[in-house]
Amino acid sequence: MTGRPHDPARERVLARIRRALADVPRHERPGDHPVPRAYALTHGERTAAERVALLAAHLEDYRATVHRAGAAELPELLTGLLRRRGARRVVVPAGVPPEWLAGVGAGAGVEMVPDTPGLTTGELDRVDSVVTGCALAVAETGTLVLDGGPGQGRRRITLVPDHHVCVVRVPSQVVDSVPQALGRLDPLRPLTWISGPSATSDIELDRVEGVHGPRTLEVVLLDEAAP
């Protein structure tokens, strides 16, 4: 970045800030002010199985539905979830392994809608369900994080449809804590952290599920160790 045009407001704000900080010693560098990080990086030691169990429990606490499957059972499970929902149109982003949805297709009367730039918000609003993977999941908070990587698509596809099925590979995609999650994420990617279905606390400060995002969140824990 070179030579930005003169902006009087910018100069005024910066000058005010510098005057306001007259008490800060001149030799103090930004990193000099100490930040004691005595907090825990995880809250407890867990085996992989315990971590996955905690994720499941916390997802359910906030009314996500949790399913478990091995690779062999996954297609049948996903087909069943979509059928039970009565989904006719399902948006599927690039990078979702074709075998996941091997059981779903024209034969089953379900239209697979690819996530393309031409897909308008109006068309997306007429989609019933979306199936994605994720970047990682956080056990301690019951959170899924999507980063637009393979199998996750643009942010809007997990937002406009009312039913989101998210597949988490366990245990490799599960971390214990928020600090661990941030360490594995790339801030330059658009990130969406999802903890349960859309909710509001706006009516008498009590949580109610289901406002603008998907009102039904189903999480499939795909066991990498199982056949």
């Binding site: 606490d61 990130l191 969406t192 999802i194 279905p197 606390s201 995002g213």
Partner: peptide
């Protein structure tokens, strides 16, 4: 909101 995590957080650069 007394939650372990709020339902949605968006981060963009």
């Amino acid at each position: 909101t007394a939650e372990r995590m709020n339902p949605y957080t968006t981060m963009w650069t």
